[in-house]
C-alpha cells in the first residue's frame, strides 16, 4: 500500500497526471468506494485490498472526468481488460490513462500505454474461474421449466433502477436502447415482460464484449444474477467465435464479423 501511495504521489508531483482514481475506505469496514485524488497530500486516502471490487474504468468515458486532465488509475485485471476493450471500440485514446496495475498478480506497476497493458495481460491467467464454470454447468443441468422458473423469480425482483448499466464499463452509449421511446422499445414499468426484455437485451448488447468483471451483479440492489447471463454469452462467444474481449487492441467484435461457414445446424 505504501508503494501504491508513493507511486501516486510521484505521478501527481511530477504532473504526469492531474488526478488519480483509486479506492478509499467506505462507509462500513468491508466496503470500499472510488476516490479521485487531485493533490499529492491526499494520496494517503488510497488503499487497496480484496474488497476493492468496483470496476473503475466506468469513470473513464465520462466528459466530466475527462476534463480533469490526464488520469492515473488504480486498476485490477478486469479494469485493464476494460481499457483494452475501450481501445478496440475506439473510445479511449492511447496514453490518455496511466494505469497502476495491482492485484493478485502483485504490483503496483506502471502501465503507461495500451501496448504495456496488452503485454502485462498476456502474462496473466485467462478465462473464467472454475467456480464460475461450475455455476453455469449447474444451471444448464436444470430442465427448461426449472430454468424458466429460476429466471422469472430473478427478473421479478428487478426494479429497473439500471444500476447494472451504470456500473458497467461497456454500457457507455449516450442514448441507451431503454431510453428509446418512439416507439417505446422496452417498457419503463417494471413488469414481468419488461424486466425479461431489459435483462436479455442488456446481455445481448454485451455479448462478445463483456469482459466478465461482475460489476453489474455487484451493483444490483436486488442481487439478480446478471453475471450468469453475461458469463454464458461470454463462454458461447468464446467457443463459437473465439472471442476474447479485452485481451488485445486489434481484436474484432464477434458480432460485427462473420464466417461463411458459421455453424447453422439449427436453421432449416
Amino acid at each position: 500500500m505504501e508503494q501504491l501511495q508513493q507511486m501516486a504521489r510521484e505521478l501527481l508531483e511530477r504532473q504526469q497526471v492531474q488526478v488519480i482514481i483509486g479506492y478509499e475506505a467506505g462507509s462500513e469496514a468491508n466496503r470500499r468506494r472510488a476516490v479521485f485524488v487531485r493533490r499529492a497530500e491526499d494520496v494517503s486516502r488510497l488503499i487497496f485490498d480484496d474488497a476493492c471490487r468496483q470496476n473503475l474504468a466506468t469513470y473513464l468515458l465520462k466528459p466530466e472526468v475527462l476534463v480533469l486532465g490526464k488520469i492515473g488509475m488504480v486498476v485490477r485485471r478486469n479494469t485493464l481488460r476494460s481499457l483494452m476493450q475501450y481501445a478496440v471500440e475506439n473510445q479511449l485514446a492511447d496514453e490518455r490513462v496511466i494505469a497502476i496495475g495491482i492485484g493478485e498478480e502483485g504490483g503496483p506497476r506502471l502501465l503507461p500505454n495500451f501496448a504495456a497493458v496488452e503485454e502485462y495481460l498476456a502474462q496473466l491467467p485467462r478465462g473464467p474461474s472454475a467456480a464460475e464454470k461450475a455455476e453455469l454447468k449447474k444451471m444448464e443441468q436444470l430442465v427448461m421449466e426449472q430454468r424458466w422458473a429460476f429466471w422469472r423469480e430473478e427478473f421479478d425482483r428487478c426494479i429497473k433502477c439500471y444500476a447494472c448499466r451504470a456500473a458497467c464499463p461497456l454500457c457507455y452509449c449516450n442514448r441507451c436502447i431503454t431510453e428509446v421511446n418512439q416507439p417505446q422499445w422496452i417498457p419503463v414499468a417494471s413488469d414481468a415482460l419488461g424486466n425479461l426484455e431489459w435483462n436479455v437485451i442488456r446481455a445481448m448488447h454485451l455479448a462478445g464484449r463483456c469482459i466478465g468483471c461482475g460489476s453489474c451483479a455487484d451493483a444490483c440492489p436486488q442481487g439478480i444474477r446478471i453475471d450468469l447471463l453475461n458469463g454464458l454469452l461470454a463462454r458461447e462467444a468464446q467457443q463459437q467465435f473465439a472471442a476474447e474481449p479485452g485481451y488485445g487492441q486489434r481484436k474484432d467484435y464477434a458480432l460485427a464479423v462473420f464466417k461463411p461457414d458459421d455453424k447453422e445446424e439449427f436453421i432449416r
Binding site: R152, E236, A237, D262, K263
Partner: peptide
C-alpha cells in the same frame, strides 16, 4: 451472415433463460 451469428448467441441465451 450477421443475423446468423446473432441467432447463434441469442438461441443459447433463450435456452439458458428457459424460453
Amino acid at each position: 451472415y450477421h443475423a446468423r451469428r446473432r441467432w447463434m448467441l441469442f438461441r443459447r441465451l433463450m435456452d439458458f433463460v428457459g424460453v
